[in-house]
């Protein structure tokens, strides 16, 4: 698998144990915690999916996007606008539709923004994100700035048989967990594939990748669209969870928050952003109950974490556990060359 710069290798056995343990915990949790927390955990997992999606572009592609909330929110609006007034929309029609709409919009935004680099790419994506925000904020589409309600949650019914009831908090929790699991599996496969390697190569050295014949623009556009479509899944489920969408769902503020989750968790690993999302939301939840000025405390904690753990929260694992693998080679040419000056 492509290693990201600064990646720390926690022993794979520790990883496996942690993975199995968290899977077991996540399967049991909804039956032991109050329903409020079942809902909270579902929300955190959807944010985790959004952070994982963003990291494909930010961590692996080296492109900082500030419009991912727009893809997230747009998918929510697709659900809201296609839900009939008298009953639930079919998830099997509206979810693919939301993904297609977002893919098309992301292809246009990506094709235009990816002509720029660095800070200009950030500005371009911010501008496109805000255009979508104002499209829903300043027009009558979807209730304008007031947002729009989805009165009936989407239904997962095949041939008269209801697979899951999205209105049921526990069912919804498992749908979110399943989506999260599939996202992780998909991204793991993707970043380890030739496509993932080429994407990382283009981030390491764009000119070099071009000189090897890789269509860097096309690779980045594909990664951008894939990432947007995953964000759309999270946005669609989020809209279904709360039965309400508003322009704030598309705003840059959410884009920036997700970016903080990615950086906090660590962009140098696949699961880092998920850890970041859950940690940030958990932190907010705890601080809200303890302090009136909780945002101030949150800010200070985030600053402290960035200073203490520049590799992100996933670095914590590496600190406790012995590292795997490559001891620096002290024999051979490395030494020889130093000797030659």
């Amino acid at each position: 698998m492509a290693k990201l710069p600064g990646a720390t290798h926690v022993s794979s056995r520790f990883y496996r144990i942690a993975l199995v343990a968290s899977l077991l915990v996540s399967l049991v949790l909804p039956f032991v915690v109050p329903v409020y927390y079942v809902q909270f955990l579902s929300k955190a997992m959807l944010m985790g999916i959004l952070a994982l999606a963003l990291n494909l572009v930010v961590g692996y592609g080296g492109l900082v996007s500030l419009c991912h909330a727009a893809f997230f929110g747009l998918a929510g609006y697709v659900l809201a606008l296609t839900s009939p007034a008298s009953g639930g929309a079919s998830i099997f029609i509206t979810l693919p539709l939301a993904m297609i709409v977002v893919a098309a919009v992301a292809a246009v935004i990506g094709a235009l923004s990816l002509r720029t680099r660095g800070i200009y790419f950030i500005m371009a994506t911010l501008a496109f994100g805000e255009m979508l925000f104002y499209l829903f904020h300043d027009t009558k589409i979807g209730g304008g700035s007031d947002g729009i309600y989805i009165y009936y949650e989407p239904e997962a019914v095949i041939a008269g048989f209801r697979l899951v009831d999205l209105g049921n908090k526990t069912h919804f929790y498992f749908v979110s967990l399943g989506a999260l699991f599939l996202t992780l599996l998909f991204l793991k496969g993707l970043v380890g594939s030739p496509f993932g390697h080429a994407l990382a190569a283009a981030r390491d050295n764009e000119r070099r990748a071009l000189s090897l014949g890789f269509p860097v623009f096309g690779l980045r556009l594909a990664a951008f669209v894939i990432s947007a479509v995953i964000a759309a899944v999270a946005g669609y489920l989020s809209a279904a969870q709360f039965g309400f969408v508003a322009p704030q769902m598309l705003g840059w503020h959410l884009s920036a928050t997700v970016l903080v989750m990615v950086v906090l968790g660590g962009l140098s690993s696949l699961v880092g952003p998920l850890v970041g999302a859950i940690a940030l939301m958990g932190l907010e939840e705890v601080l809200k109950s303890l302090f009136d000025n909780w945002k101030l405390v949150k800010g200070l904690i985030i600053i402290a974490l960035v200073f203490l753990l520049p590799g992100g929260l996933q670095q914590l694992g590496a600190l406790v556990m012995p590292e795997r693998g490559e001891a620096p080679d002290t024999t051979g040419e490395a030494v020889e060359e130093k000797a030659h000056g």
């Binding site: 492509a2 190569a201 050295n205 071009l210 090897l212």
Partner: peptide, 22 residues
Amino acid sequence: PEDIARAGIAYVPEGRGVFGSL
């Protein structure tokens, strides 16, 4: 550049440009 590379020209630039994460 990517078309030219595919046409059969390979470039080894100064500073090498090895992909550090691979």
